Amino acid sequence: MLYKLRSTHGNFDRIDPVAFKDFSSFGSLEKDLEELIAESILDILFEDGGLMPIFQERQYQSEADIYALNKKGELIIFELKGGAAGEGAVYQALRYAQDAGQWTFSTLQQKFNQYSNSSSDLPLAHKEAFKLEQPLDAKELNKKQHLIIIGSAADDNLINAVDYWKHQGISIKFLPYRIYEINDEKYFEFFTLPYDRHINPGHEKGVLFDTNRSWDEDAIWYMMENNRVAAFGGAKRFVEYVYPGDIVFFSHRWTGLVAAGRVKKGSINSPDDATSYRDVEFITPVPKKGQTIKAMPFGMVSEITGMSFFWARTIKVPYLSKDEAENLAKELNTYLEIR
């Protein structure tokens, strides 16, 4: 809940709850909420819990809104409600979970290929996303299903229905959202469980950032030679997630961390429609084109930080705190110096 702080003679002495709304208040469709969540599920809303989306609802089909795999290969099923939905939404979600629980591996593979618009092998893609030592066996995928229903914080009927089935032993959670309208601007509030922990974007942090090797082998040199952290095409928005003072660790696919730089003061630059970048000051050795690239292996990064990262996106969540980033930068600098 959001409260407005009020003061008398310079002393805060009262808090007033701010009225909130849901998507239906603005005439928005449930699909708007689905697209918003799907686009932000990994890098913002579930910053600390890696999820790999494998399928999204098709129009006029009896399907949940989003299906994703966690590191264990368990299926996470999201049902999103833009306005008041009531207990009927839970019955609907339970049916989706029952259907999904009977999917064969070939069905999972087909849905993933359709979603990713590729012919990638699902176990190998899952292994790469979570940097597992070995891909999970096909029979290990979708052994268990979990339901997450996202809806308006004011939908008491929906909340009560979720609580009922949770007490019956069903793996189901309710995640509330609220929309606030303040000074003609709209703000989206979202809560993750077990508690709402996010790195404050206003604080200095560490960000593991992809060099775009999957799409362009030369993208790394665009960054290294120009002292930049950059993103391209549909991923260029991720540059907006790093701020001056942040430490960016350059993650080169199939290789490891190749350099680290601190983001310099200044605005985001967009020299063309397909590119966005921020200037950085490198604080580690930088690879040179034509020479063997030195890199800290991904496994070593996890050992140093004690974290499991979701490696499949441009930004490798979770973020690092300032102290964690400084420590990793120190270790990376030492590692690259002696190689």
Rank of each mutant, 00 (worst) to 15 (best):
L328M: 02
G256F: 11
D210R: 12
D99M: 10
L69P: 05
G10K: 10
F188N: 09
I76K: 06
E39N: 11
E326G: 00
I268Y: 09
S119F: 04
E34T: 14
S25M: 01
Q59A: 13
H198V: 08
G10C: 11
K288Q: 13
F78P: 01
S118E: 09
K289Q: 15
V263M: 07
A230V: 02
F188T: 04
A231L: 02
F78Y: 15
D156V: 08
G290R: 05
I293H: 04
M300L: 15
Q168T: 04
R237M: 09
P194Y: 04
A129V: 08
E57A: 13
Y277I: 03
A329F: 05
D273N: 06
M1E: 12
R228W: 05
A100H: 00
L69V: 08
G73Y: 11
E87A: 13
Y241W: 11
N183P: 00
K288E: 13
Q92W: 01
S120E: 13
E79T: 07
D155G: 00
V207M: 13
E34D: 14
G256D: 12
Y164A: 11
N327I: 07
N113Q: 14
F238N: 12
V207E: 07
E181P: 02
Y187M: 04
E34C: 02
W215S: 13
F309L: 01
G233L: 09
F23C: 05
D65S: 06
Q102V: 03
Y277Q: 06
E281I: 08
K330A: 13
K4F: 03
G206P: 02
K139F: 01
W165D: 02
K173M: 10
A19H: 03
P285M: 04
V258P: 07
F191M: 13
Y241Q: 12
T314R: 11
N11Y: 10
A259Q: 00
A230K: 06
V286T: 14
L136N: 01
W165M: 03
T104D: 08
Y115E: 06
A129H: 11
V317F: 03
L328V: 02
G306R: 07
G202C: 00
H146V: 09
V248T: 04
K236T: 03
A219C: 08
Q102S: 12
L336D: 08
F310L: 13
Y335F: 15
D13S: 13
L42E: 14
Y177V: 07
D13G: 03
V162I: 14
A274N: 14
Y241A: 11
L124V: 06
H167Y: 07
K294A: 12
P53G: 03
E34P: 00
N157G: 15
H252T: 01
T107S: 10
Y3N: 09
D163W: 09
N11H: 10
N269Q: 15
Y180N: 06
S106Y: 09
Y319C: 01
G10A: 12
F190Y: 15
K316T: 10
I172K: 08
Y277R: 02
G10Y: 09
H9F: 14
T104A: 10
